[in-house]
Structure formats: structure tokens, C-alpha cells
Simulated scan of single mutants.
Amino acid sequence: MPRSNRSHGRAARAREPHPELDVDRLSSGWRRTETRGGREWNVQPVSEAQAVKTYVCPGCSLEVASGVSHVVVWRADGVLGDAADLAARRHWHLHCWRMGTR
């Protein structure tokens, strides 16, 4: 009898349902916390595909055009709570954020 090259475990795994992807968990994996000037900041990258609006960079006061990758920054240690910190988030050019221009 010829030998089968198929894995018998693959068929059993194919019948099992895939777990749902948690998009919030996946996207928050990119988020990081940085400390600058004694304050903690949440920094989340935005890819070219995700950048669909135009913003003004607080570092250089120039436009962050749609389709340009950048970072979104908000306080991680604000006293008014997470909702207020998130509402005060700003979109920075990656270079401006790295330079630390304030």
C-alpha cells in the first residue's frame, strides 16, 4: 500500500472553528508608552492606508497630509481621565515627534 503524505491532523484542525480576531487587541499591540519631560505619552503609529484625513502637526505647524504615515500622541498620565486625554490627542509627523519639538 502506498504511503500517504497528508497529515491526518490537518483535516481535524480544518474542522475546528477559528477564534474571532480581537481587532482592538491587535491594534493596541502597536501602541507604546514613552516618557518625555517627566510625563508619560501614548504613541500609536498610523500607516499610510489608515491616514485618511489631514491634520496640523503641533511640532512644526505644517500639514500632516492624508496618505502620510504619522503618529497619534496623547497623555498616558493625565489627571482628567482617559477620555479627556484621548480627546486631546494630536497627530504628529514621525520626524517631529522623534525630534521632541514642543
Rank of each mutant, 00 (worst) to 15 (best):
G81D: 07
R32K: 12
V72L: 05
R10I: 05
R36K: 13
R39T: 02
A11H: 13
T54C: 03
M1E: 14
A76F: 07
V72P: 07
V79N: 09
R10N: 14
R89L: 02
G9A: 10
R102S: 03
A84G: 13
P58S: 05
A51V: 00
W41Q: 03
V56Y: 05
A84D: 09
E40F: 07
V64F: 08
W74H: 08
R6F: 13
S4C: 13
W97R: 02
E48Q: 06
C60R: 06
H8C: 11
R15V: 15
A51M: 12
R25G: 12
V72K: 03
A12H: 13
G100C: 04
G81H: 14
V79F: 09
G37A: 09
S69P: 04
S66M: 10
R32G: 03
W41F: 01
T33A: 14
R6E: 13
N42F: 08
G29S: 12
V46G: 00
E63V: 12
V23T: 10
H93C: 09
G29C: 12
R90K: 12
K53E: 07
S47D: 05
G81Q: 08
G29P: 03
G78T: 04
C60Q: 11
M1Y: 10
V72Y: 02
C57Y: 08
H8Y: 14
P19L: 14
H70E: 04
G59F: 01
L80Y: 10
H95V: 08
V71R: 00
